[in-house]
Nucleic acid binder design. Structure first.
Length: 530
RNA sequence: GGGGGCGUAACUCAAUCGGUAGAGUAGCGGGCUUUUAACCCGUAAGUUGAAGGUUCGAGUCCUUCCGCCCUCACCA
């Protein structure tokens, strides 16, 4: 652990304690004010003048010393203000403290608010306190952290050393809040459904598996909250939503993280057309929260070098027509589908509905999706690949489902929810027969039972919140909008070490040298320790 | 998993054809009472991701491994 602490700073810490100064006091000043507000107030004053008393707390990220005078840059969540500490204004012990200061320390300065001769808003200190001593230096002062891995790994340092990063994450939070506000305003009830699922379902994805000791049973981390939310529709809740962390045991890329945030919402007495309208409203509200509204009232996002107009309504295109436009023949044309699959190097799995339409969809993803910059709704998917969606009343070969594309990514997926219990059971059984590692291995009988009690006609939709945030915040990688993206455990930190025999604490692996850098995986055990 | 790129001080980065591993910031010591990336003097700092190989000599070339980034595959 010693390498976490800078030796010089440990010495400072000892010096502070020797002087009777507590480097980690329990209380902060009650009357502190945010730096940003103080700066705005000071700007109203004459340069070279001082006014009322003020207290500011923050992290020291800049220091310019002149012997008997020192300027500090104090940063708090939303701003930065300069503090000026002068020998003849501070008590001798307080001024002596400034000599034991390091960049990164958290401090409080009490003094008069004003402006310096050159007009810089400043708190002219009469009292100075250390609120928390930093034992590691902050990142480089004008480049900050640059290495993307380090930035994610040391997100805390990335955040405090870079106001832009902090602003981006605060905007992400605003986006999530905006989504929530729209739904609450529309009468949706926020709910929390289980994360531990005995049977996984609601999406096609490989799950994370875990084990419950007391019940001696395997459980899965949810890949989607869908089936529980629809049970609530059966329960008589007519509008529900959940901002759900979901887990998928799949690859990591600049738009995939093993755990991500999915907003799902369901409305009784509605269908997928209403979901499309709500999606437009949600995206627009989120865009406004991200500050994308222009002077002309349009919502414009810039993502990966391209501009997107997010002002509703968004175009609606039919899956079947897009397919035919791109490939030149209808998706029911078995011979030509088969030939196109060969041309694209995709496998032909047979004429049974499920494999056939899966292959058609592979073609669609290959030939159509790359061109979908969006925003656009793609409507009406082949029913065979939509086990949770209601067949279209016009043609049961097609399902009432849309996907919403933006920035070249799939951002939302919605159905008129299938509520026919017998049909649902058959669909589940087909899936299980398929033996695809990414489809559920067993039928969720309890869900079928819930449907058997009667679920109202309903529309439902899931939105990938992180991907939406990417587009709205102009982030090229999902890692830039995740507070703590998934990372391989750091060697030597004990995180990837062998799990202890019991379920005891973390085995601090002092290791060093040839340490057993074994892959030993075991991120499982890193889960919540209660 | 395939292809490509990268890995040098705590941070941000240099190092010509294979020829003594450097700078700025941060740190430490000193000076300085109005600065804005303050400045000045001094000082410390490295298993060049790891292991092997070629060579008189390797940060640089070769092999293997580890990690990260991009890309493809994968990912309703």
């Amino acid at each position: 652990m010693a390498e976490f602490f800078d030796a010089d700073r440990l010495q400072r810490l000892a010096d502070l304690r020797a002087r009777g100064v507590d480097p980690y006091p329990a209380r902060s000043p009650e009357d502190r004010e945010p730096a940003g507000a103080l700066v705005r107030e000071a700007r109203e004053m004459e340069a070279g003048s001082e006014g009322r008393e003020a207290v500011v707390c923050g992290r020291v990220l800049g220091r310019r010393g002149y012997g008997k005078l020192v300027f500090l840059d104090l940063h708090d969540q939303d701003g930065r203000i300069q503090a000026c500490l002068q020998k003849d204004r501070l008590s001798a012990p307080d001024f002596a403290l400034t000599k034991l200061l390091n960049l990164g320390d958290l401090v409080a300065v009490r003094g008069s608010l004003g402006r310096t001769r050159v007009g810089e808003p400043t708190v002219f200190g009469t009292e100075f306190r250390i609120l928390a001593k930093a034992l590691l230096p902050p990142p480089e002062k004008w480049h900050g952290l640059n290495d993307p891995e380090l930035r994610a790994r040391l997100r805390y340092a990335d955040l405090f050393s870079s106001p832009e990063v902090r602003q981006r994450f605060l905007k992400r939070a605003a986006v999530v809040r905006a989504l929530q506000e729209v739904l609450e305003a529309r009468g949706f009830v926020g709910v929390e459904t289980p994360v531990l699922h005995p049977v996984y379902g609601g999406a096609n994805a490989r799950p994370f598996r875990t084990h419950h000791h007391a019940l001696d049973m395997d459980l899965y981390l949810r890949i989607a909250p869908e089936l529980y939310l629809k049970r609530l529709l059966v329960g008589g809740l007519e509008r529900v939503y959940e901002i759900a962390r979901v887990f998928r045991n799949e690859g990591i890329s600049n738009r995939h993280n093993p755990e991500f945030t999915m907003l799902e919402f369901y409305a009784a007495w509605c269908d997928y057309r209403h979901m499309a309208e709500l999606t437009e409203e949600l995206v627009a509200a989120a865009a406004r929260a991200a500050g994308l509204e222009q002077e002309d009232g349009r919502l414009r996002a810039r993502f990966r070098g391209e501009d997107y107009d997010l002002s509703p309504p968004y175009p609606r295109r039919r899956y079947r027509e897009l397919f035919e436009e791109a490939l030149g023949f209808p998706p029911e044309d078995r011979k030509r589908v088969r030939r196109a699959l060969e041309e694209h190097g995709l496998p032909w799995e047979g004429e049974e509905p499920y494999p056939y339409w899966k292959a058609v969809n592979a073609l669609f993803e290959e030939a159509v999706e790359p061109g979908l910059r969006g925003p656009v709704f793609v409507l009406d998917y082949p029913a065979a690949i939509c086990p949770l969606a209601k067949p279209s009343p016009e043609d049961p070969a097609w399902a009432e489902r849309f996907e919403f594309f933006l920035g070249g990514m799939e951002l939302a997926n919605a159905f008129s929810e299938l509520n026919d219990p017998e049909l649902q059971l058959r669909r589940f059984e087909e899936q299980v027969r398929d033996r695809d590692p990414e489809t559920p291995a067993e039928v969720d009988h309890d869900y079928v039972r819930a449907l058997a009690y009667g679920m109202p006609p309903a529309g439902g939709c899931g939105i990938g919140v992180d991907r939406l945030a990417m587009v709205l915040l102009g982030a090229d990688s999902i890692r830039e909008v995740l507070w703590f993206p998934h990372l391989r455990p750091e060697a030597g930190l004990g995180a990837g070490a062998e799990p202890p025999p019991g379920d005891g604490g973390t085995g601090a692996s002092p290791g060093g040298g040839a340490a057993a850098a074994g892959e030993a995986a075991a991120p499982d055990s890193a889960a919540d320790g209660c």
